[in-house]
């Protein structure tokens, strides 16, 4: 199954912009929706929880964000009544082993990707998603 909609959640606008450019040059997905903070993303997910058609297939999630950080997002995400399998990829500049360790405790997190994101890394991610599907 093809990866259609991907959410990018990152407070750094430049990163979001660059991610969008990279993804559009790649075959990663058909459509991107960007959020500059995790709270907005949660609201959107909650709103569309019952409609699998418009829920994303994958989420690229940053960890260090104001208001609600990546971990808080994951905690809230787990409690949402969503039946669709959404693959979450942590995408962060943190190389702290504690963060990597922490990520493994969330089942929904499929991969921990260290910034910078490169074409190569996006290609690998594509393969991973098709394997998962």
């Amino acid at each position: 199954m093809k990866n259609k909609l991907t959410y990018i959640i990152d407070d750094d606008k430049l990163t979001v912009k660059l991610m969008s450019i990279l993804i559009s040059k790649n075959d990663f997905c058909e459509e991107i929706e960007s959020f500059y903070n995790a709270k907005d993303a949660i609201s959107k997910l909650k709103e569309n929880a019952g409609d699998n058609g418009i829920l994303p297939d994958a989420i690229l999630l940053d960890l260090n964000m104001p208001v609600m950080d990546g971990w808080q997002f994951l905690d809230e995400f787990i409690s949402l009544p969503i039946t669709k399998e959404i693959h979450i990829f942590i995408m962060t500049s943190s190389i702290d082993p504690a963060d990597i360790e922490m990520a493994t405790t969330y089942k929904v997190v499929k991969e921990y990707i260290m910034k910078p994101i490169t074409t190569q890394k996006l290609d690998d991610l594509c393969k991973l998603i098709s394997d998962l599907n």
């Binding site: 990163t15 990279l22 040059k25 943190s94 910034k115 910078p116």
Partner: peptide, 25 residues
Amino acid sequence: FTHIVSHNIRSHTSNLSMIVDVIEN
């Protein structure tokens, strides 16, 4: 400080390398 170096500086430098990657491609 470690955190600052690992996150804040890294996030900027990784942005820069992403731009370089985009330009190259």
